[in-house]
């Protein structure tokens, strides 16, 4: 029985007060409405924490004092509390005000006290200033929305749209980029539409093939061309037919092969612009 009592008494030394260090706001120079920030460091031994329910709630502590907020931050050897107070004491003369202390509880049952502090608050207006209606500061100004950032945003968006559309037009060889030499089939396909003479159409497509190949291209060069520009591989048969047709039409060699040159040029142009 005696040992049981001793066992109950033993944990008592653990309930020793933790070390509390307060960094209080300056003691002088405060006005009505000023915010006073107090930092309190509490050194806690391992395994001991602060009971969050025992912290003071943000509230109107007194008729002249608000606790605006309280935040806790874990540190290496304890916890750091930041208490934000607000003074609403309307002083007639410089006067010392006392901020009360608050009790807190630790997880091991020990109790501690968050220290209070005192500060001197001073009047804003002279003691003899009248409190007549003309002393009231007027209503605030009407405030227009600053349109500049919105205008800048619109200009930026328009610029980006024009730039991206221009890039698309360049890539697709639309006007004003339609005459670009790097799109010989596209240019040829457009001019072919206005040409009725089949011989002229063939010539035009041969010039486009020459331009795409980099030098004059004949039927034997077709495999070389397809190796250089594999995107045209799907057109191999129709290109071969086209060369055979040209051999027949211009030199009378081999059988006459009919083919729609304009359609061929159109399809080549589509591949060239990445649409197929």
């Amino acid at each position: 029985m005696r040992w049981l009592l001793l066992g109950l008494l033993l944990p008592l030394p653990v309930l020793a007060q933790p070390r509390i260090v307060a960094e209080n706001p300056h003691g002088y120079g405060w006005w009505l409405g000023d915010e006073l920030v107090q930092h309190i460091r509490i050194d806690l031994s391992d395994g001991v924490s602060l009971d969050p329910a025992s912290l003071p709630r943000p509230r109107r502590v007194d008729y002249w004092l608000d606790l605006r907020g309280i935040s806790a931050r874990e540190t290496r050897d304890g916890i750091e509390l930041t208490l934000s107070w607000q003074n609403f004491y309307s002083a007639m003369e410089p006067k010392r005000q006392e901020v009360p202390s608050s009790p807190i509880r630790l997880s091991n049952g020990a109790e501690a006290v968050l220290p209070g502090f005192s500060f001197v608050t001073s009047p804003i207006r002279p003691l003899t200033a009248p409190s007549s209606p003309d002393q009231l500061l007027p209503d605030p100004e009407f405030r227009l929305i600053d349109p500049y950032p919105h205008r800048a945003g619109l200009v930026g968006a328009v610029f980006m749209f024009v730039a991206s559309f221009a890039a698309l037009a360049w890539h697709q060889a639309w006007w004003p980029f339609h005459a670009r030499p790097a799109r010989p089939f596209t240019r040829a396909a457009r001019r072919l539409r206005r040409l009725a003479d089949p011989a002229m159409q063939r010539r035009l497509l041969h010039r486009a093939l020459d331009a795409a190949f980099g030098k004059v291209m004949i039927g034997e060069d077709l495999s070389q061309f397809l190796a250089d520009r594999p995107e045209f591989a799907s057109m191999a048969d129709r290109l071969a037919d086209f060369f055979h047709g040209s051999d027949a039409a211009f030199f009378g060699v081999g059988p006459v092969v009919e083919g729609d040159v304009a359609a061929l040029a159109r399809d080549l142009s589509r591949i060239e612009r990445g649409q197929r």
Partner: peptide
Amino acid sequence: MRRLVCIALITLALVFAGATVWRGYVLWMV
């Protein structure tokens, strides 16, 4: 590759067209 670039450019142009309309609407409201 060309096809991918083409699709990317069309998407980009559409996105910026949308952004322009939205920005214009916001400015009009302001």
